[in-house]
Amino acid sequence: MFFVNANLTASPKVSFFMEGVYTTAKGSFDPFDLPLPDDIPADVAISPDHVGDSKGAYDFTGIGDYSDLDYTTLEGTFGVNYKLDQRATLYGSVNVVDLQDDQTYVYGDLTGNIVTYATGMTVGF
């Protein structure tokens, strides 16, 4: 995960703020083999999906592909503050969160994006 946060006071009345977070998460199984008893013949096809030999019917080397997780999330916020006087400040910001799902499986494709715009005023007393 990388993150960056920055604040810039451009003038006595105007300041900018920015925040960014980049996260990747990956997980997978290593492929594995299933040892079988020697009496199982090696030259008999078991099913159309396992062309080759009968030991191929017990081929688990693809399990890692079924169980991969691969998510990338990017979140960014950019905003500006404008100081009206010593007590009151106007603000405006935009926040973007983007998730990329590169290994869709059990929960379907979780890729999604949310954009939020915000504005308002803060008063100190």
């Binding site: 999330t73 603000y91 969160v97 983007d98 998730l99 799902d101 929960y107 379907g108 494709d109 979780l110 890729t111 999604g112 994006n113 949310i114 954009v115 939020t116 715009y117 915000a118 504005t119 308002g120 005023m121 803060t122 008063v123």
Partner: peptide, 16 residues
Amino acid sequence: TAGAHISDSTDNPVRV
């Protein structure tokens, strides 16, 4: 602080 916000989404918003 008093203000307002509005959000919108594309694709699947549940996980994000």
